[in-house]
Amino acid sequence: MNPFRYARADDAADAVALVTAGGTAAFLGGGTNLVDLMRETVARPDSLVDVSGLSDEITETDTGGLLIGAAVRNTALAGHLAVRTRYPLLSRAILGGASAQIRNMATVGGNILQRTRCTYFYDTAGSRCNKRDPGAGCDAIDGFNRIHAILDASPECVATNPSDMCVALAALDATVHIRSLGGARTIAFTDLHRTPGETPEYDTVLEPGDLIVAVELPALPFSAQSTYRKVRDRASYAFALVSVAAALDVQDGRVRDVRLALGGVAHRPWRAWKAEAALRGAPATAQSYRDAADAELADARPLSDNGFKIELARRTIVAVLTELAGPDGEAA
């Protein structure tokens, strides 16, 4: 870990001022990802601005949603009664991630910005990585790529976003509240993370000095009818191979509305827009779910080791929707 200066921000404005004061500063939340990346010398900021003491409140919005401070700890968010009852997919996504100790430390803002687990990205000494070192090349494409992307990857980068929480936020049409020197603005959560393209070094559309201050969940009438399913290589404490976040509204045997997002399949939390479009108005049957999954995965491109993810994602989507439809849907 390179030496760095440490400063604690009093408020968001202070944080933004500190981080834009020059050099290569970074915001520090719970540290669960950034400290690890610094120790591995993937990240080498010359100063850290600690924002873990900023807003950790969860408040009701005027429109029936929730406003979640960026410094809310993952455990607090997952355990919040309104989240558990109204947005169970978000609780479940968070509880499926990492370990209790890490969830107790990690902030919502930090979780959103956590970086890929691609092992070539982590191997600063011995591997090439365009995300870490733009233009260096990618050793993952022809290497161990079992955990890598099947959707929207580029020849430059096949990394996946590792967050569970982000998959739920993508499904929920969340909005990210940003503070910067220029003032405050919001970004739709699904617009926050990028496809890798030719510039995989950028995980998100945030500019230097942009601080995530809150995440807003809109009211969603059927979000209580939602869940998150994570498929991984051991029963707990492992990153997703594939995960599915979904909320489903079935009436009279038809899908009235749906939110669907996938994790573990792309450079960003993957909102399954095509599947949703295919599902709206369709009969709530396993066949509809399969067709929707097929529509979403039609563009999936396997690498040498991760072709199984296509079938796994398809099956998991169908299983999750079938479960959510319950007795209102036709038995699979």
Partner: peptide
């Protein structure tokens, strides 16, 4: 010849739930 998962996060051992 490089070991690519030199980590307890990426080399999976059974956890309690397993």
């Amino acid at each position: 010849g490089r070991i690519m998962n030199p980590s307890l996060a990426e080399y999976h051992l059974p956890v309690h739930a397993d």
